[in-house]
């Protein structure tokens, strides 16, 4: 007997079910079909502007810095200003996200853009988030050529661009967006929910920012 049959057989024996009966099957099918939401905290039950403010406040509370710009054309200037303020070289790692094609890079002559996945040698990386979650100040980032996953973790500074209208109240709203974009039951290879810069409390329970992931997280919200 295969490991699979043994394990499933033991489970069914312990639960005293001979095989998948119709009633149990129906209960599973309906949960998978209806995806009931359960309890959603009222904290982020706000009009759009309120959700955007809550997102920025929560992200800041968990250690990210947040800037707001009026147009994609202002993103490059904000990135340059961030690098200068942190004494970083004018170089960034970035994917192929079409939303960041025309982000004013032509206006920042000194800024060098390196495209593709990070090789670990980048001090700063720029990504575009799929969504923001106001409830906890969390970013949702999808893997793929537009925003390689390595950029989320290898650079010392992670700069994430987020469209204001993509800020939602809760995780459940992001699941709805995902299903609309990808289809029900389909996921990108990686979905990263990121809440603040990396940290560790493993030595004497003292929280220190900058463990294995980025030491700093900067969020640029585009109106």
């Amino acid at each position: 007997m295969s490991g699979r049959d043994t394990v499933l057989g033991k489970i069914r024996a312990s639960m005293r079910v001979s095989g998948p009966d119709a009633e149990r099957k129906a209960a599973v099918a309906s949960r998978l079909r209806d995806t009931p939401t359960g309890v959603i905290p009222a904290r982020a039950d706000l009009p759009a502007a309120g959700q955007q403010e809550l997102f920025c406040a929560m992200a800041a509370q968990f250690g990210a810095s947040v800037a707001r710009v009026n147009d994609y054309r202002e993103v490059a200037a904000e990135v340059s200003a961030y690098l200068r303020a942190h004494n970083l070289p004018a170089e960034i790692r970035i994917g192929a996200d079409p939303r960041l094609k025309d982000a004013g890079w032509d206006l920042e002559k000194n800024l060098e853009l390196r495209h593709g996945a990070s090789d670990g040698g980048d001090l700063a990386g720029v990504s575009h988030a799929m969504a923001g979650i106001a409830e906890t100040g969390t970013l949702a980032l999808l893997s793929g050529p537009d925003n390689p996953t390595t950029i989320n973790f290898l650079p010392e500074h992670h700069i994430v661009v987020l469209r204001e209208s993509d800020i939602k109240g809760d995780m459940e709203s992001v699941w709805a967006m995902l299903r609309e974009q990808k289809g029900k039951g389909v996921m990108p290879r990686a979905l990263n929910l990121v809440t603040g810069p990396s940290r560790s409390g493993d030595i004497e329970q003292t929280i220190i920012l900058g463990a294995h992931g980025p030491r700093a997280l900067h969020i640029v919200v585009v109106a």
């Binding site: 906890t136 893997s143 793929g144 050529p145 390689p148 390595t150 290879r189 990686a190 990263n192 809440t195």
Partner: peptide
């Protein structure tokens, strides 16, 4: 409220995935 990284992984690298 949330840990820093909550990562959802589904299958291996896709054809167009750079990493």
């Amino acid at each position: 409220d949330m840990s820093v990284y909550t990562t959802f992984s589904t299958g291996p690298k896709r054809p167009d995935d750079p990493d």
